[in-house]
C-alpha cells in the first residue's frame, strides 16, 4: 500500500544511507481535554519497521510521547543506490500505512 501521507527519503553516502521519514499521524495521547472537558481518544503509532530490500533493519515500538506527525532520521550501513527502502507503521487502532522508495 503506497501512501503520500508518508514522506520518505534515503540518501546514499560513503557510510551507507541516511534515511528520513515524516509520517502523518495525530499521535493523540488520550489525556488531553478539550474546552468542554471531553478527552480525545488515544490514537498513536505503536510500531514502525524499516526494511531494506525486504530485510528488517530497524524496529521502533513507540508510545504517545512521540510528537504529532512524527519525524525520524536513521542511518543504515551497506545501502546502495537503487535499493528498496520501506517504512511501515501500525497504530493502536489497528490502522497501518507503508511506503517504499528507492535509495538515491
Amino acid at each position: 500500500m503506497q501512501n503520500d501521507a508518508i514522506r520518505l527519503r534515503a540518501t546514499v553516502d560513503e557510510q551507507g544511507a541516511l534515511i528520513k521519514a515524516l509520517l502523518t499521524h495525530p499521535m493523540e495521547s488520550g489525556f488531553r481535554k478539550n474546552a468542554s472537558g471531553e478527552s480525545a481518544t488515544a490514537h498513536y503509532i505503536t510500531d514502525i519497521t524499516l526494511r531494506i530490500n525486504d530485510e528488517t533493519v530497524l524496529t521502533l515500538l513507540t508510545g504517545s510521547g512521540i510528537a504529532a506527525n512524527p519525524l525520524f532520521g536513521w542511518r543504515i550501513a551497506s545501502v546502495r543506490s537503487g535499493d528498496s527502502v520501506t517504512v511501515v507503521w501500525r497504530d493502536n487502532l489497528g490502522k497501518t500505512q507503508s511506503k517504499t522508495i528507492n535509495a538515491q
Binding site: M27, L58, G65, I66, W74, R75
Partner: peptide
C-alpha cells in the same frame, strides 16, 4: 515516560533523530 523502544539490526548505525513531546 517511555517514548520509544528501538531494536537495531546489525546494519543499523547507533544514531537516530526523532521529535518527541
Amino acid at each position: 515516560p517511555l517514548l520509544a523502544d528501538i531494536r537495531l539490526g546489525e546494519r543499523s548505525k547507533p544514531w537516530l533523530e526523532a521529535k518527541v513531546k
